[in-house]
């Protein structure tokens, strides 16, 4: 073997310098391209802050919307509506999702588990507008009118895959010794799960629920023909109800500057709520300590 030649090409200083240069250059380019994702974020947040902050005042969060042409007014009905619709969605979907997650972690290899996992993935990928149609057929048509409840059903269906997955992942990581220890003391199965396993994984489950809540609280599409929206204060879940995303959509697509202003304010409020819940989830996870990670 021509080792002299080999040594020469392996130790070619120029080639090595070029390779190092190429490496540094690619690093710079990749860093540059990826740092560009900051641009839309900064732009969106800046517009929200600049335009939104001037619309938010006491009236904004306590008053009902005023008709076109009249200055002022607020979106208290949408704030209340969002809270009600999201809360109701949580009530509807968290129990089945958590139980589903427990089922998957307890019977990871059963046939039904494979089917549930498959369904869950399909559900997770289903466009929200399609889920809106589903809720419309399921609830709005039989009731004969739009309602907050139907909106919660739609959002609840969207929430299930998120919470179910979080529950499964969390419970899977709990060491089997823990439940074996409990079971060895003669504790019945359901108590082992409910009193030992679930409380141990509570942090992860709650985190999943909070993250799910941030996802659905910004959802608009499935509410268009379920909760529908309403200019009035309505706390009755059986009737059409406004929500922050709906108000943003309706005002944003209107031709009036006055309404655009309200939409900026509502957007800022919505994003604060979304980021706020997100932060809460993080604080919760880091505070609780111990547990599963």
């Amino acid at each position: 073997m021509d080792t002299v030649y080999l040594k020469r090409i392996l130790e070619d200083e120029k080639a090595i310098r070029q390779r190092i240069l190429k490496n540094n250059l690619s690093g710079v380019i990749i860093t540059f391209i990826s740092s560009l994702v900051v641009v839309p974020l900064v732009l969106i947040l800046a517009y929200l802050l600049i335009n939104g902050i001037s619309s938010i005042n006491f009236d904004f969060i306590t008053q009902l919307p005023k008709p076109v042409g009249e200055a002022g007014g607020g979106i208290v009905n949408a704030i209340a509506g969002s809270a009600i619709i999201v809360f109701l969605a949580l009530v509807l979907s968290v129990p089945p999702a958590v139980f589903g997650g427990i089922y998957l972690s307890e019977y990871p290899d059963s046939k039904l588990s494979a089917l549930v996992r498959f369904s869950n993935e399909i559900l997770q990928g289903t466009p929200s507008i399609v889920i809106g149609i589903f809720a419309w057929v399921l609830v709005v048509v039989p009731m004969g009118h739009f309602s907050a409840f139907s909106g919660s059903v739609a959002l609840g269906i969207m929430l299930i895959p998120i919470v179910l997955k979080a529950t499964e992942e969390t419970l899977k990581r709990i060491p089997p010794e823990l439940r074996e220890a409990a079971a060895s003391m003669g504790v019945p199965y359901h108590r082992v799960i409910l009193k030992v396993v679930v409380p141990t994984g509570l942090k992860g489950i709650v985190n999943g629920i909070l993250l799910g809540a941030t996802r659905i609280s910004g959802e608009t599409a499935p509410l268009l023909f379920t909760a529908f929206g309403s200019p009035f204060m309505n706390l009755h879940a059986g009737k059409p109800m406004s929500s922050l995303p709906l108000v943003i959509y309706n005002y944003a697509t209107s031709p009036y500057d006055e309404w655009h202003k309200l939409a900026w304010g509502a957007s800022l409020l919505l994003i604060l709520a979304v980021f706020g819940i997100n932060m809460l989830a993080r604080i919760f996870v880091s505070k609780q300590g111990g547990g599963t990670q």
Binding site: V37, V38, L43, I44, Y47, T214, G218, P245, Y249, F275
Partner: peptide, 28 residues
């Protein structure tokens, strides 16, 4: 720092509701 900034930017972008993207897109 660069990685941390990119990471949070991506996470925050993921958290922005669709309707806000639409609104911003429409007006900007």
């Amino acid at each position: 720092t660069a990685a941390a900034i990119v990471k949070s930017a991506v996470e925050l972008l993921a958290g922005i509701p669709s309707v806000i993207y639409g609104f911003w897109g429409l007006l900007v």
